[in-house]
Amino acid sequence: MSHMWFSSLARLATIVMLLVILSVLSPPFLSLQNLINVVRQASLLFLLASGLTVVILTSGIDLSIGSVLALSASIAATLIKQDWIWVGPLIGLLVGAGCGFLNGLMVALVGLPPFIATYGMLWIAEGFAVVFMKGEIIGGFPSSFRFLGAGHIVGIPVPILGMVVTLSACLFALRRTNFGRYVYMIGANREAARLSGINIRGNLLLVYSLSGFISAFAGLLFISRIGAVESTIGEPLLLPALAAVCIGGTSLFGGEGGIGGTVVGALILTLVTNGMNMLNVSSYWQSLLMGAIVVLSVAVDQLGSARVERT
C-alpha cells in the first residue's frame, strides 16, 4: 500500500515539476487559453488510453487501436464527403466497434493470445485503410462536421467535452457497475472469475468492442479537429497510449489500476510532448523517448512492487 501512495506522490511531483519547467521555458504556457488548447489536442491520447486501460485491466492488450482509428476515420470521412453527414460518423463508429468485436471473438472464443489477435487486426485495419484511401488525403469537411472537433458548447471545446464524458463513463462503468467488477476479476484471476460464474466470453467481447468503439470516436474528433484524414494517421498513436497507461500504474498483468492513473499518465505524457515541441525536438527523438518511457515505467513499477512483496 505504501508503494501505491509513494508512486501517486511521485506522479504528482512529476506533473508539478513539468508544469514549472514548461512555464519557465515559455511564460505564456500557463495562460488559460494555451492550457485549453493543450488539453484539446491531448483529448485524443486520453480517449485512446482510456479504452486501452479497460482492455489491459482484463490482462489483455489492444495493439490495433491506432489502425482501427485510421480505418474508421477513413470510412467516415469518405461517406461525409458524399454528404452523408450523420450516417458517415455512425458507420465509422460501427466499423470501430466491429473491429473491436472481431478482436474479442479471436481472444475470447478462439483463444488466441490478445497481442497476436490485435496485432493481426492492426495490419488488417491498416491495410484496408490504405486500400480505402488509395494513398490520398481527404479534407475539406462541411462545417457541421468540423463542429465536432473545432466547435464550442457553452464556451468549452467539443473534444474536451467528449473526452470528459467518455472518461466519466469509463470511470463509472469500472467503479460502479457489475461489468466493472467483472473486468477487474477477469484480470486478477480468470479461473476464479470463471468458477464464480462470470460470463468471461461475453465480458471480453464487450471490452474489446468498447476499445474499438472508443478508438473510432477518438478518430472522428481527431479528423474533425485537423480537418483531414489519411490512411496513416493511426500509426504514431499506439505507443503514447500504451505509455500513458503504463505511467498511470495500471498493471499489465491485469486486475490492478484504473482510469484515474491513466488520466495522470496521459497528462504527464502530454506535458512532456509539449515541452519537446517547445524545445523543437525532432519527432524522431519522440519515438525513442516514448519507447524508453514505456520500458522504464513498467520496469520501475515492477521493481517497486517486487520490493514491497519482499518486505
Binding site: F115, F253, Y284, L288, A292, V298
Partner: peptide, 30 residues
C-alpha cells in the same frame, strides 16, 4: 528486462521497438 525483471515480453519489446525506430531515424536523419 524480460528475464531478470520479469516484465511482459510484448510490452518490453514494443518499448524497444520505439527506441530502435527512434535511433534509426535519428542516425539516418529519416
Amino acid at each position: 528486462l524480460i528475464s531478470y525483471l520479469g516484465l511482459p515480453p510484448f510490452v518490453v519489446t514494443l518499448g524497444t521497438f520505439g527506441v530502435a525506430q527512434g535511433c534509426a531515424l535519428i542516425l539516418s536523419k529519416g
